[in-house]
Simulated scan of single mutants.
Amino acid sequence: MNGVEVARRAITGITGREPAEVRPVGGGDTAAAFAVRFADGSSAFAKWAPEKMPGAIDAEAASLEWLAEPGVAAVPAVHGHDSSWLVTEFVPSTRPTETAAAGLGAALARLHASGAEAFGAAPPGGPADAWIGLAPMRNEPTADWPHFYARHRIEPYLRSAVERGAIDRDGAAVISRVCDELDDLAGPAEPPARLHGDLWSGNVRWGERAWLIDPAAHGGHRETDLAMLQLFGCPQLDHVLTAYQEVSPLADGWRERVGLHQLFPLLVHAVLFGGGFGAQAVAAARSALAAR
């Protein structure tokens, strides 16, 4: 049985509707993905996660539902899922506009302000052991952000990056120093924000408004989402940040803390892809220490 037929059967089982068309599309590095059309002309999107990623579909479904719950950000509706397949609303993509970017900034500000139970809290119904891309990610409620960020977002990936040779001993010492000094580096204390959690520019779909897709949601620091959005370049970024600030101004010094918050996704990339990401992570750690 080919992949399209497997997808067709899974979609039918989950939605109770027989697709008229199932077409493979790009789905990132974590899954097989399919555009779906039903006989009535409506559409959907389906993705599959392999057995080597247990809990990935449950985590994403819970993330999407949690981000959608406040009604402030555009998030694809979840039509249904099982342990291997997720079926959601299909979101087409067009060119980004200033209006959509400003809307994204305002929506993110309100989404973050919707809050979370704790730093490191998983979405309601979501597993503690989740994923960011192909890397496992632990969501563990923690009393304060510096402790959470060091223990669950820096240290596990630093260990793996060192084991894989992506970061040498000297670089690891710099990053460990960041963990030791996070109380001084973190800036003013803030309540836990409701984060998308993997907000690089590829997880924003542009249309009349901007949609948030492929989340790794959890309770965290709002500057982490914004720093990740800046990491690989985001269209109309200035309009996103300006609109965010108009709704919910960021604490003084936030620009100097961008490297601190980019340290987590850079370490994830160092673990997954090696190359220059280890060096970039060390550079981000040095910038965080220098910005104090």
Results as ranks from 00 to 15, higher is better:
residue 1 M to A: 13
residue 2 N to S: 10
residue 2 N to G: 10
residue 5 E to M: 08
residue 6 V to L: 14
residue 7 A to T: 02
residue 8 R to A: 13
residue 18 E to V: 15
residue 19 P to T: 12
residue 20 A to M: 08
residue 25 V to D: 04
residue 29 D to Y: 02
residue 32 A to G: 01
residue 34 F to M: 08
residue 41 G to P: 02
residue 44 A to H: 10
residue 46 A to P: 02
residue 46 A to G: 01
residue 50 P to A: 12
residue 52 K to G: 12
residue 57 I to V: 15
residue 58 D to R: 11
residue 58 D to F: 01
residue 61 A to Q: 01
residue 62 A to K: 07
residue 63 S to R: 07
residue 67 L to I: 01
residue 70 P to M: 05
residue 71 G to M: 01
residue 76 P to G: 05
residue 79 H to Y: 09
residue 82 D to L: 03
residue 84 S to W: 06
residue 87 V to G: 04
residue 88 T to Y: 08
residue 88 T to H: 07
residue 94 T to A: 14
residue 96 P to L: 01
residue 99 T to K: 01
residue 101 A to W: 01
residue 101 A to I: 02
residue 103 G to L: 07
residue 103 G to K: 05
residue 104 L to K: 00
residue 106 A to G: 04
residue 106 A to Y: 00
residue 108 L to S: 09
residue 109 A to D: 02
residue 112 H to I: 14
residue 113 A to D: 14
residue 113 A to M: 06
residue 116 A to L: 01
residue 117 E to Y: 06
residue 118 A to R: 02
residue 121 A to R: 10
residue 126 G to F: 05
residue 134 L to N: 09
residue 134 L to D: 08
residue 136 P to Q: 08
residue 139 N to E: 06
residue 139 N to S: 03
residue 145 W to F: 15
residue 147 H to I: 12
residue 149 Y to H: 15
residue 152 H to P: 04
residue 154 I to L: 15
residue 156 P to G: 10
residue 162 V to Y: 13
residue 164 R to A: 13
residue 167 I to R: 08
residue 170 D to H: 14
residue 183 D to I: 13
residue 187 G to P: 15
residue 187 G to T: 15
residue 188 P to S: 13
residue 191 P to A: 03
residue 195 L to N: 09
residue 196 H to D: 11
residue 197 G to H: 11
residue 199 L to Y: 04
residue 199 L to A: 02
residue 202 G to E: 11
residue 203 N to L: 07
residue 206 W to M: 04
residue 207 G to A: 08
residue 208 E to S: 07
residue 216 A to F: 10
residue 218 H to C: 08
residue 219 G to P: 06
residue 222 R to Q: 07
residue 223 E to V: 11
residue 224 T to R: 06
residue 225 D to S: 11
residue 225 D to Q: 14
residue 226 L to D: 14
residue 226 L to H: 13
residue 236 Q to N: 02
residue 237 L to C: 03
residue 237 L to G: 00
residue 238 D to R: 08
residue 238 D to M: 11
residue 239 H to L: 02
residue 241 L to Q: 04
residue 244 Y to P: 03
residue 246 E to G: 00
residue 246 E to V: 00
residue 247 V to D: 00
residue 250 L to F: 05
residue 253 G to M: 11
residue 254 W to A: 03
residue 257 R to Y: 15
residue 258 V to E: 09
residue 259 G to L: 03
residue 260 L to A: 08
residue 266 L to T: 07
residue 266 L to Q: 11
residue 268 V to G: 05
residue 271 V to E: 02
residue 272 L to W: 06
residue 276 G to F: 14
residue 278 G to A: 03
residue 279 A to P: 11
residue 283 A to P: 14
residue 283 A to N: 14
residue 285 A to F: 01
residue 287 S to W: 03
residue 288 A to Q: 09
residue 288 A to T: 09
residue 290 A to L: 12
residue 291 A to I: 11
